Every structure is written in C-alpha cells, then in structure tokens.
Amino acid sequence: MLDAIAELKPQLNLALGDLGYESGIEEQFCDMVTGKLGTDLPYQLVTGNHESDGHEGDIENYIRCLPNKLPGLQGEYGTQWYADVPEKDPVVRFVLVSPGIDFRNGPLDYSKGSERWRWTTDAIDSAKSQGIPWTVVGMHVPCFSVGRYGCQAGEEFTNMLIEKKVDLVLSGHDHVYQRTHQLSTGASCPGLKPAAFSRGCLADSDGTMRQGQGTVFATVGTGGIGLYDINSKDPEMGYFAMTSGKNRNPTFGTLDVKATAEELTARFVPAKGYSLKDSFAIQRG
C-alpha cells in the first residue's frame, strides 16, 4: 500500500489511525513509512483505537517520529486538528477529529453542544466563511458501514456533518473499502438512522455529483491488516456505491483525492496484485 502511495507522489497523506497493532514498534512503523515515502512528505496522523489508550502502541510515540508537517495547523495534532491546503489560497480544509474511541481517561466528548462539537462546527463553518472551496473531515471510526462495526462515530455527530454540507468524510477502523452515494438531510430525510435505509436520504447516486447536494462517506480500511467481510444484508447497503472486503473482491490500497477550485475527485488505487476500481467526482457550481 505504501508503494502505491509512493507512485502517486501526493502532496500529503492522511493516516486515519490503527497504525501498528502492537506496542513498542512505533519507531519501526515510522521508519517503514519514511523509508517508502521519504522524510519530507506530510504523513498526517489522527489516532485510532489501537493507539489512543496505549494498549497496542501510543499515539504520542507516533507523533514524535511522524510529526506534523503542514504549516498553519490548528488544534491538537494526532487527536483533533485542522489545516488548510495549500496554506496560501487554500482549496481544501482538512478537519481531523476523534469521536467514538477510548483514550486513557475514556472517550472524548463529541456530544451535541459539547466543546469538541463546537470546535468541529466552527472549523467547518469558518472554512466556508473564508471561501475555501472544499471541506474534508477525517476520523478513525465511521458511522455508516456494511462491515463489522456499527455507528461508533455517533448518529448526531454524523448527521451534523451532513447538515453542515461537508463534502467528503473519510474514515478507517472497519477493514473494508466502502463508499457511499451522496447523502443529504432535509424534508424527505430528517436525519439518517444507523442500521436502516431511507431512499429519501440519497441526494445523488451516480459518479458525478454537485457540491452542496450532500456528503460522501468513504471508509478506507485497506492498509494491510486482515480484511473483514461485507454484510450484503445490512440495511445500510442501499447507501453504498462501492464495497470491497474479504468476501467481495478483497483489495488493499489507498484513496487518491485531488482538489481544485472547481472539482474534487477521488479514485481508489489498489496495491500491486489487486484489482478494485472506484472513482467519483464532486463539482462546484
């Protein structure tokens, strides 16, 4: 997977948690990353549940050997932060948060109206008020999934991201690749419910979408650890445009996201020896 990223020569990489699955190997992991991608690439971190509380690694150790390299970053790197890319005349704001996972003192509070809820909404709203074309949110756990897990990110928090018209939400945690259609709330969909499906929540179901009509969710849990099965009977399956897991075209790889002032595009890039293909575009105007 790192070889696939290296061939893309990206400006940055978002690593959405669960990095080493074993305590004491943080430096080994960092050396593997920098050996493949070099020491200058911003390989940007947000914690997963395996290193958030230190039981299988420690996010603080990963931060020390893979520090922030994006200028102007705001917040607490590794846990809750945002950055505009590029720093001057940005085309995208990346907002990284950590709902739904345990830290040493328990889970962080992302409930409605909490300090971390307000921080997240302010980061989203200020990007829009500053005229930054695209807003991308990243977090370790998804809400909608046809893999192994339920809505660990929280129903209210996830619906807030849709209501705020975030363009793209990225996650890991579930060891599958899954990408939704564009989802929206409104008169025909007061709010999305986990473990259920409502056709009224589908804003657009083809590969070319318009900004402001809804939000696309993509889980890219395909970094190298064993994959999970796709549950084709999951009620949420109707929200998904593409799924891949242990029992359905199993593939490791990465999501290549590109943003210009007028268009945000993404395509799944499989590691060598795998074949899954998926792509979509969101256009402004």
Results as ranks from 00 to 15, higher is better:
residue 4 A to Q: 08
residue 9 K to F: 00
residue 12 L to Y: 13
residue 15 A to P: 00
residue 15 A to I: 08
residue 22 E to P: 00
residue 25 I to Y: 04
residue 28 Q to V: 14
residue 35 G to W: 09
residue 39 T to Y: 10
residue 40 D to A: 15
residue 42 P to F: 04
residue 57 G to M: 02
residue 66 L to D: 05
residue 67 P to V: 08
residue 68 N to M: 05
residue 73 L to I: 11
residue 75 G to H: 08
residue 77 Y to F: 14
residue 77 Y to C: 07
residue 80 Q to C: 00
residue 84 D to M: 06
residue 85 V to G: 01
residue 88 K to E: 15
residue 91 V to T: 13
residue 93 R to Y: 05
residue 95 V to S: 04
residue 96 L to P: 01
residue 97 V to E: 02
residue 97 V to Y: 04
residue 103 F to H: 12
residue 103 F to T: 04
residue 105 N to I: 01
residue 105 N to Q: 15
residue 110 Y to F: 15
residue 116 R to Y: 12
residue 117 W to I: 06
residue 119 W to C: 05
residue 119 W to M: 08
residue 122 D to E: 15
residue 122 D to S: 13
residue 123 A to S: 14
residue 126 S to E: 14
residue 134 W to N: 02
residue 137 V to I: 14
residue 153 A to W: 03
residue 156 E to P: 02
residue 160 M to D: 04
residue 165 K to P: 01
residue 167 D to I: 03
residue 167 D to T: 11
residue 170 L to S: 08
residue 171 S to P: 07
residue 172 G to E: 08
residue 176 V to I: 15
residue 183 L to G: 06
residue 186 G to L: 05
residue 187 A to K: 12
residue 193 K to W: 08
residue 193 K to D: 14
residue 194 P to N: 13
residue 202 L to H: 05
residue 205 S to L: 00
residue 206 D to P: 00
residue 212 G to V: 08
residue 214 G to V: 03
residue 217 F to V: 09
residue 220 V to R: 02
residue 224 G to V: 04
residue 227 L to Y: 07
residue 231 N to S: 15
residue 231 N to H: 15
residue 234 D to N: 15
residue 235 P to A: 13
residue 238 G to I: 09
residue 242 M to F: 02
residue 245 G to Q: 08
residue 246 K to M: 08
residue 247 N to C: 09
residue 257 V to Q: 07
residue 261 A to V: 11
residue 261 A to I: 06
residue 268 F to A: 05
residue 268 F to E: 02
residue 271 A to K: 08
residue 274 Y to N: 07
residue 277 K to N: 09
residue 279 S to N: 10
residue 281 A to D: 00
residue 282 I to A: 01
residue 284 R to H: 12
residue 285 G to I: 01
